[in-house]
């Protein structure tokens, strides 16, 4: 059970949060311009890395804010947490 440092509320138990999949996948601004393949890339393709992964999390049972997390999926170490819109930390 992770201890997650919500950037708005501080450390809270994992059960207050909801995981939201891979981070930094921006919704295309002009979807109609995209080919089926390009749209499918946005819509369906997600990485599932063993190692350092960038993820979206939501403090669903708290402030309800979304934020980003860098997590090593091999040992669940949370390496960084930062707000939506902020640049990911350089590796």
């Amino acid at each position: 059970m992770f201890l997650i440092n919500c950037p708005y509320c501080g450390e809270r138990d994992q059960q207050e949060f909801k995981a939201g999949g891979e981070a930094h996948i921006e919704r295309p601004k002009q979807p109609t311009e995209l080919s089926d393949d390009e749209w499918a890339e946005y819509l369906f393709m997600r990485k599932n890395i063993k190692g350092v992964q960038f993820e979206r999390w939501n403090h669903a049972h708290g402030c309800r804010k979304w934020f980003n997390m860098v997590r090593d999926t091999s040992n669940d170490e949370i390496k960084a947490i930062y707000k939506m819109g902020e640049k990911p930390p350089s590796q």
């Binding site: 939201g20 919704r27 979206r56 939501n58 309800r64 979304w66 939506m84 819109g85």
Partner: peptide, 9 residues
């Protein structure tokens, strides 16, 4: 909320 916060802030 997700769209508002992440795609259309």
């Amino acid at each position: 909320e997700d769209y508002l916060q992440t795609e259309w802030p």
